[in-house]
């Protein structure tokens, strides 16, 4: 058996020795465990690590929820984070929003012209933007910009002992760093989505005018005449969930980063990957729920 397998073996035996002592039937398990192959030990270790991670996430969310509703809310830091999350993402969201609408209009127009339904263009683009493209693309952009930023910032604070310094200054780092960031992301990302939707419609008007000729007022009135409450409301609600998950994942990855500088990069990277994946999954669930309604 390799040295690594022996190490893992020792570690597992150390952990479960009390269990083996307590339950007589498990006493013989010691001999059997030693005979297990290296692959089995690796699988056991992976399962153990996975369950530990799940427990850590659960505890983190529990503590976060508790701190969110406790006394002494860090309002100034919350406002600062709203500024960081909302205002500083505006240029990127502006460009993305306009291009999103522009591309959608340019791509859709030929097909609609083919069926003689070009007058449907404003309504179709507006519904696509508000129901799906605006929230998802804005959330994915924010996962990249805001989620990675939070992961890297908190990760580097951990590496340079700033979070420890905060703790010994009698400041609760969960309340000061995490609650404020998660709430700011939850509140600001729906606003950014609405902003991106608005600019997307402006962009689609510009796209429609490249080969067509429609006034801004007519385009807007046609667009909004097709939009109903059921198009708008679920999109806003899911945007809150997108914001919460981006803030939560970014903060969790940063806050639980390791001590080395390498872990800062890992925290930032995994924050983007995981929050983007969760955005897509939440979107899928939201679409199913909306469809049922």
């Amino acid at each position: 058996m390799s040295r690594k397998a022996n190490d893992i073996n020792r570690s597992i035996m150390k952990k479960y020795t009390p269990v083996i002592k307590v339950i007589p039937n498990l006493r013989n398990a010691k001999k059997q465990t030693i005979k297990l192959s290296e692959k089995t030990f690796e699988k056991i270790e992976k399962a153990h690590n996975f369950l530990t991670d799940v427990a850590d996430v659960f505890l983190f969310i529990t503590r976060l929820t508790k701190e969110t509703f406790s006394r002494d809310f860090e309002f100034r830091e919350f406002l600062r984070q709203c500024f960081q999350v909302g205002y500083k993402a505006l240029p990127l969201i502006s460009v993305t929003g306009i291009i999103m609408g522009l591309v959608l209009a340019i791509q859709s127009r030929p097909a609609l012209v083919h069926f003689g339904a070009v007058s449907m263009l404003p309504g179709m683009v507006a519904i696509s933007l508000i129901r799906e493209m605006g929230p998802v693309i804005t959330a994915l952009i924010c996962a990249g910009k805001i989620g990675s930023g939070m992961g890297a910032e908190l990760g580097s604070m951990k590496v340079t002992e700033q979070i420890d310094a905060m703790e010994v200054s009698s400041t609760n780092p969960i309340k000061f760093l995490i609650v404020t960031r998660v709430l700011a992301a939850t509140l600001m990302i729906p606003l950014l989505v609405l902003y991106a939707d608005g600019l997307g419609i402006v962009g689609s008007w510009a796209g429609a005018n490249i080969k067509g000729d429609v006034t801004f007022v007519l385009f807007f009135s046609q667009a909004f005449s097709q939009i109903q409450f059921i198009d708008f409301f679920p999109a806003v609600i899911k945007s809150f969930f997108f914001g919460a998950v981006i803030g939560l994942v970014g903060c969790y990855k940063g806050y639980t980063a390791g001590r080395g500088t390498e872990s800062v990069g890992i925290a930032a990277n995994s924050a983007v990957v995981l929050s983007s994946l969760l955005v897509i999954i939440i979107d899928l669930i939201a679409v199913q729920i909306t469809d049922m309604i």
Binding site: S156, M157, T160, E161, Q162, D164, A165, M166, V168
Partner: peptide, 10 residues
């Protein structure tokens, strides 16, 4: 507590 790295808030 004076930290080894200083731990000033960046």
């Amino acid at each position: 507590f004076l930290f080894q790295s200083g731990a000033l808030y960046d």
